[in-house]
Amino acid sequence: MYSTKLRSLSLATLLTLGGAFLLAAYYAPVEADQGFSQKIFYVHVPMAIVALGGFVWGGIQGLLFLRTRDPKHDLRSYVAIHMSVILGIGVLLTGGLWARAAWGVWFEWREATLVSFLIVFLLYCTYQPLRFSILDPEKQSRYAAVFAVTAGAFVPLNFMAVRLANPFIHPRVLNNTTGGALPVDMKIPFYLALVGMTLLFVTLYRLEMTHKLTRGRVKGLERRLERLQGERDEASIPARSAAPQVLA
């Protein structure tokens, strides 16, 4: 049911993200202070923004799950956080490369945004192990949702606290990350990349959801067939993944 949507989504992702990266390479000017290495900005910052948005979205879906107890929301929360953690790896790696290129270090503690992201990333790394270590599926969803809600609220608070810990202004360009101070020929590729990255997130999110739902259906069919054949194997194989099991 998702396939047509997925096809147009992937196409849109490819066009916007590809276009944004081409614009970043050829149209955007070389930044005066940092030189060519500032181009990492167009992949690193959109990725970070989308990952954080995914974490918050996971928290919202967790809240909806707690209110409605609809497994659909649990699946959404899980998939959003899962994708954001994957993007988070990319954010930290590209951030490290940028820090190395710009300041000669692999990690810059005075860069509040990068530090905050690391803390948030480390927190969300425990989401999967938490799910894995709760056996009862209903309890698993509920506890994971509580985690998602708390961690989602933590994201903005953490950014504020870390920023306060760095009262002095780091003499560099990254203060432009909000986009406010960006010249217009940097703004266009940046916002296009942000749109592209969001589309990429949505595409992968839907792909993952489709996969999980399909797997649930296959599992349901397997169970039905087993029942019909009278092979009442009570000791069914436990789920290998911590992913929410939505049985169609």
Binding site: F21, V30, Q34, G35, F36, S37, K39, I40, V43, H44, M47, I86, L87, I89, G90, L93, T94, L97, W98, R100, A101, A102, L200, L204, L207, E208, H211, R215
Partner: peptide, 29 residues
């Protein structure tokens, strides 16, 4: 230009990550 290696590496990281993810998805498929 200066620093192009890092820029290349950063974009490569992004695409590799995407590739690995898609590879895993294909495997699960």
């Amino acid at each position: 230009p200066d620093g192009s290696g890092y820029v290349l590496a950063a974009y490569l990281v992004f695409f590799l990550l995407l590739l690995i993810y898609l590879g895993i998805t294909a495997y699960r498929l």
